[in-house]
Amino acid sequence: MPGVLEHRLLDARLVLQLLPAAAYSARDPVQWQTLGVTLERQRGVHAIDSDHREDFDSWPGTLALTPKGVEVFSESLSGGEYLLARWQGEAPLIAGARRVQCPGHARALALGREMRRLLLAPVRDVLALEQCALAFIGLPQQQAGAVASMPRLELVLQQIADQYAQPLSLAQLAVTYGHNELRLLRDFRRAVGITPHAWITEVRLQAARRLLAHGDLPLAAIAQDCGFAHQSHLGSALRHSLGMTPRSYRQRFCIS
């Protein structure tokens, strides 16, 4: 997978960064307002405007707003793909004097995934990227409609992370959750922002992207190893998500 991808917009007042699923240790500059959305689950330790470190577990679809002046240190052994917008100067990103997190933000997740596609494109559509970025930084002014994460859904997320290469049914996930399929579907969408099926596809694509970027395993083998029915299934999923074929993705981002 690619490293950090960055694009500056609006005379460099707005900076978009696509952070990869890789180990990191970073401190955000306090002179910037930042708005980020988790595209892939992240776990590690962080310190928010203090030296006190604590564990964090950020689920996909979590929108985090950090006002100017609030310093954030974050460290993770595995990382997780993350879309971050940094804004310097006057901006609509107002959240008082503290950091605010909002899980299950479907609109933020959708915009984050679209900005990811635009940032990864061989030729960037600057107008589309700018419009998407402005819609993204306008989200804190809108009603999020999100709810707190449900604890037992952590077991479902972990099951998907562990078993994404296997056929997974809603019934199997519902057993893990301890409620029926309709309750699981409702709660998962509220906590993550997309359906379990869409998230399973995303996890499989993340795994496929890592394999495409490291080594020369045949595409059919990558599809099988990542839980896709066949090579064309992988191809259609990647084209729908990123607008690239597996071969074009490998040619552009292979680092081995």
Rank of each mutant, 00 (worst) to 15 (best):
M1K: 13
G3I: 06
L9Q: 03
L9T: 01
L9H: 03
L14H: 11
L14Y: 10
L14M: 14
Q17M: 15
L19F: 04
L19E: 10
L19P: 04
P20R: 01
A21W: 01
A22Q: 15
S25H: 12
A26V: 11
D28V: 14
D28F: 15
P29I: 01
W32I: 00
L35G: 06
V37F: 01
V37Y: 00
T38W: 01
R41G: 13
Q42A: 12
Q42S: 08
R43K: 10
R43S: 11
A47R: 04
I48D: 15
H52D: 11
D55P: 12
D57G: 05
S58M: 15
G61K: 00
A64Q: 10
E71G: 15
E71M: 14
L77N: 14
G79D: 05
G79P: 09
G80I: 02
G80N: 04
L83R: 00
A85Y: 00
W87S: 08
W87M: 01
Q88C: 11
Q88L: 12
G89N: 03
A91M: 07
A91G: 14
P92C: 08
I94Y: 11
A95W: 05
A95S: 14
A95T: 12
V100W: 09
V100K: 05
P103T: 06
P103Q: 05
A106C: 11
A110C: 01
A110T: 02
R113C: 03
M115T: 05
R116M: 06
R117K: 15
L118T: 05
L119I: 03
L120T: 13
L120H: 06
P122V: 02
V123S: 11
R124S: 11
L127T: 09
L129W: 02
Q131S: 08
Q131D: 09
Q131T: 08
C132R: 08
A133L: 07
G138T: 07
G138M: 13
Q141L: 15
Q143A: 12
A146P: 09
A148E: 15
M150A: 12
L153N: 05
L153K: 03
E154I: 00
I160F: 00
A161F: 04
Y164E: 05
A165V: 07
A165I: 07
P167R: 04
L168C: 00
Q172C: 03
L173S: 07
L173G: 13
Y177Q: 03
G178V: 09
H179T: 08
R183V: 15
R186H: 13
F188M: 03
R189Y: 10
R190D: 06
V192I: 15
T195S: 15
T201M: 07
E202L: 12
Q206Y: 09
A208H: 04
L212E: 04
A213C: 14
A213K: 00
H214Y: 09
G215D: 00
G215F: 01
D216G: 03
P218W: 05
L219N: 08
I222Y: 06
A223V: 04
C226W: 07
G227Y: 00
F228L: 03
H230Q: 10
H230K: 10
H230N: 14
Q231S: 13
Q231Y: 10
H233R: 13
L234M: 09
L234E: 02
G235E: 14
A237M: 12
L238N: 05
R239M: 12
S241W: 15
L242T: 06
R247T: 06
R250E: 02
R252M: 11
R252Y: 07
I255S: 11
I255M: 08
I255A: 10
